[in-house]
Design a protein around this nucleic acid. Structure first.
Length: 348
DNA sequence: CAAATTTGACCTGC
DNA sequence: GCAGGTCAAATTTG
């Protein structure tokens, strides 16, 4: 409970900071004669600066409104959390005290897991071993479950990072063979690896045996595989607002060529400060940045060029690969109802 | 024998 | 109530 309140506070503070920054910007634009926006073209400066002032003011108002909304939301949330805790404990009359308790704790935390980044890929395996689905993505995975999915020919396999316990790596993935084409596996990744496993070492292959008879497992596994780009709508799961967070496009070259450390840093930052804060709708659906480089599976920084695997993570609006100006997105964000954080901060 | 997989049961959200 | 996701004991594998 404390944590969620803390998250609310963080979001609120972020919102207020954003408001402050916007106010400063506005101040600069109005009162600073050397402002780049007004000094470049004298003929159009007046209308341009006026419109930019308008934008800034809009942002400022929105920011303040969001902060107010969040502050209001806090009151109810604290109460709600109390009730939830009570309900969860009291309604559970199971005698399995210890196991239940630990499970309960776990499940309670798992609510937050919904907020981890999630993206989907389709992997085509040419070798004819799609049966095993030996999908190599540079990480070792341990299968923890398999489930028949309604309407799907093949069961879905559930995998988590082998280093989950050792290093607390919470990355998971779900692998499911496509109904239409057995050669295609749809892989949904959730969370990013925080383990220190290196790609340089040969990754242990995930052997996916869903819906296959064992004789097929003796087939020679060839690593040849190709990630194919599916239509954007299909390739990118937009199940919840947090998904969109992947689509942040950090135009900064230094970030664009991120290494593992920075990725982890960002993810940690995201998870600690933003992602958990579900109710604030931070980074709402319409925020169309791209984090593709940060979510690159090749987290060692070797890059996709090292392999034949091309990471394809596309935002809903195809902006992922667009070199468009970051500020444009930033402006767009402020048109959104639930925007609550200054994304420019992330850019720096 | 340790690690990985299988699989039925359990939990949660819709 | 159902479907999807996870757990964990049993089993298999190296």
């Amino acid at each position: 409970m404390k944590e969620s309140i803390k998250c609310e506070e963080i979001g609120l503070i972020g919102e207020l900071i954003q408001g402050e920054e916007l106010a400063k910007k506005l101040y600069d634009q109005i009162f600073s004669p050397s402002s780049p926006s007004s000094s470049t073209s004298s003929s159009s400066s007046s209308s341009t600066s006026t419109s930019s002032h308008q934008v800034l003011i809009d942002k400022l108002i929105l920011s303040i409104e969001t902060a107010i909304t969040m502050a209001k939301g806090n009151e109810g949330k604290i109460k709600t959390n109390n009730v939830n805790m009570m309900d969860s404990h009291c309604s559970n009359g199971s005698p399995k005290s210890e196991v239940q308790d630990s499970k309960f704790k776990h499940k309670h935390v798992s609510k937050k897991r919904k907020t981890v980044p999630k993206w989907t890929e389709q992997v085509k395996v040419y070798s004819g071993t799609a049966a095993e689905g030996s999908v190599e993505d540079g990480h070792s995975w341990r299968k923890y479950g398999q489930k028949d999915i309604l309407g799907a020919k093949f069961p879905r396999g559930y995998y988590r990072c082998t280093h989950r316990h050792a290093q607390g790596c919470l990355a998971t993935k779900q692998v499911q063979k496509s109904d239409e084409d057995e050669m295609i596996c749809e892989i949904t990744y959730k969370g990013r690896h925080t383990c220190t496993q290196s790609n340089k070492a040969l990754p242990s292959k995930t052997k996916l045996k869903f819906g296959q008879n064992k004789s097929q497992l003796n087939q020679k596994i060839q690593p040849q595989e190709e990630k194919i780009q599916s239509p954007l709508e299909n390739n990118f799961s937009i199940d919840d607002k947090e998904d969109i967070f992947q689509s942040f496009n950090f135009s900064s070259p230094s970030i664009g060529s991120e290494n593992e450390d920075n990725n982890i840093f960002l993810e940690t930052m995201i998870e600690n400060n933003f992602m958990e804060n579900e109710d604030n709708n931070i980074f709402s659906d319409s925020n169309i940045f791209c984090l593709s480089s940060l979510l690159d599976l090749d987290s060692t920084g070797l890059g996709p060029s090292e392999s034949n695997i091309t990471e394809i993570i596309s935002g809903p609006n195809s902006i992922a690969n667009s070199p468009m100006d970051f500020d444009l997105y930033n402006d767009i964000n402020f048109d959104m109802d639930d925007f609550s954080i200054n994304t420019q901060e992330l850019c720096y």
